[in-house]
Design a protein around this nucleic acid. Sequence first.
DNA 1: AATGAATGAGATTTCATTCAT
DNA 2: GATGAATGAAATCTCATTCAT
Lengths: 193, 193, 193, 193
Amino acid sequence: MSPRTKKQLADHRESRREEILNAALELFAKNGYHNTSVEQIRKKAGVSKGLIYNYFKEKKDLMKAIVMGSMEQAGQFFETMEELTNPREKLKLLIDLSFDYITKQFEHSKLMVGLSLQVDQFDELDQIVHGKYAGTMPLLENLLKEIGFPNPKEEAYLLAALMDGIGIQYIVLKDDLPVETLRNYLYQKYSLI
Amino acid sequence: MSPRTKKQLADHRESRREEILNAALELFAKNGYHNTSVEQIRKKAGVSKGLIYNYFKEKKDLMKAIVMGSMEQAGQFFETMEELTNPREKLKLLIDLSFDYITKQFEHSKLMVGLSLQVDQFDELDQIVHGKYAGTMPLLENLLKEIGFPNPKEEAYLLAALMDGIGIQYIVLKDDLPVETLRNYLYQKYSLI
Amino acid sequence: MSPRTKKQLADHRESRREEILNAALELFAKNGYHNTSVEQIRKKAGVSKGLIYNYFKEKKDLMKAIVMGSMEQAGQFFETMEELTNPREKLKLLIDLSFDYITKQFEHSKLMVGLSLQVDQFDELDQIVHGKYAGTMPLLENLLKEIGFPNPKEEAYLLAALMDGIGIQYIVLKDDLPVETLRNYLYQKYSLI
Amino acid sequence: MSPRTKKQLADHRESRREEILNAALELFAKNGYHNTSVEQIRKKAGVSKGLIYNYFKEKKDLMKAIVMGSMEQAGQFFETMEELTNPREKLKLLIDLSFDYITKQFEHSKLMVGLSLQVDQFDELDQIVHGKYAGTMPLLENLLKEIGFPNPKEEAYLLAALMDGIGIQYIVLKDDLPVETLRNYLYQKYSLI
DNA sequence: AATGAATGAGATTTCATTCAT
DNA sequence: GATGAATGAAATCTCATTCAT
């Protein structure tokens, strides 16, 4: 059952790595990074402690890998978005993807919010996350400008804050939050339907 | 030279307690609860370790005391607010106090957001915070109803989310966030001036 | 039995520190630094693991403290020596003290020889030890010059090598090495009696 | 492409073994046995971990093999020496070979000195090394007796100590040590030229 | 013969908490 | 009330060794 060729080996490594990362993600999101022990991750992933350190140099690297993965995904968001031409369609897609992220990729979402609060504890991440953020705000601003908002910059901050806020409310209230109503509100506000 | 009367003793006790709590608040907000050691608090407060345990049974109690203090303050918010009669004035006050909290009581604010993500780790707090939250949403809803919004419930969630979101953005961006512009936006949206 | 005043506290700390250092010295000398666990030191010193880290930031610091102590002692050697005026008497004292060090401070001696082999693993120590060494060679050279040796520099290296070598032989052979005979040989060679 | 005949196989095995041993020697000498991991050896030798355990039952065996090799070499020293008849020539050869060992087989030399300090950690080696040492001292003593020294035994210890000491000094000082001057000193002392 | 993923015991280090004074 | 030395459980991390392929 064990791998043999180089490719099989690499595939196996990759999937093992994912298993560990998933276990870590779940626990980090639920209990926080500093309140999650490697022992807990080990147990959830069903591997030995040594193996985790075989794949990740230190505990911090688990966090880094998760966040980098998240960033990459976000990058794909925007690529998908840029394929469209109509700015209203773009914005609708952006909002839909954000709601999906908040509700369906709940754990990632929770982790990222938590991280943004303590981002300075993960040196390299700090810059990467900030850089990513700084890079996306102008995109949003442009979009709102194209749609015709008089103060696109402020409007961009507002929308970003609102999406963050909905994320938090969802974390706290879960299904008690009328997500669809909020989404419709946004559709109307931006005349997206 | 040391305090004598009962009152002096009580005052002294109270101020010592405050010093410890302030040190803890700053550190919890900056580094997170689980990433702050009692030793760090001791150093920042300039007291001995034993003394901290004289005032607080365990580390958790520092967190509890801070959060309870925050709750109490929030309660005063609403009491102040209820003294007014004009619903628009009430809402304006609520928004102003929220912005103040976000910008001036930055550490409390940051701590509370972080807490809301991991509230389940502090048993009793969980219920208290949720109870408080559950109690204030109807107030907000009523207010928006009085003002004349057609969907006051949804509008309440929206406003709450927005304030949370602005809080997060401020934590991340600090002075790069155009706080006043956002406040004005809200004034206009709710016709507060 | 426990200390109270500042002074008592400091004294107590100092003696506790010494106990730990002595335990570490014995074990490092016998088994080598990397083959000695903090657990072993803890057991030998009769303290808890935590306490060791209360006195020394990390295991390496135990090594550093021991070596620094050794250096200091060596400094006193030379001070004592400089009080004499007759160069032959000085040399005799130096030789006597070296033999004492080798035989009576056996553990220190063994540790220092071992250290000199792997000095590059303890960054700061490396420079300190080398500096000390570089500083003492000229003293020795001068002494031999005063006594009248035609090649004092080479003679100094020779004497240094010889003392090192006797140290090693003593470590390996212990009482099988005719220490006194060797000492007499040196007396004669340098006409010290 | 892979080796075929029995002899080729054996040669191949032998050379693989050597590569591993050389990597281990270098690392043991530089960092010490306990501060060298099998992983480091694996990397330096460019082989897999499993392979190392194919050739050596455990890590200790690497050390043993290196030391045994060293002993064997030393044995050849003496065999070569015994072919000569003139005792002064013998002594000169011994000194020359020792200097060569110290300067050219620097790593072996360093390792052996380090080993002699902690020889008791490698059970069997302890006895072997001691046995070898005990066996060679009489040879040296005899040599010095033949040459005509009045106290050949003491003189033998002295010479042994001196050579050890020069070894240590060379380890510490490397090319700052005037090796040739010291060698000439010995030539003169024993009238070897 | 050769690989490298996997293990688990043990090493170093941290930290909330207790307690004698 | 106040101190800080002391503890020990638990956290992070290392590493020799095994084993399936």
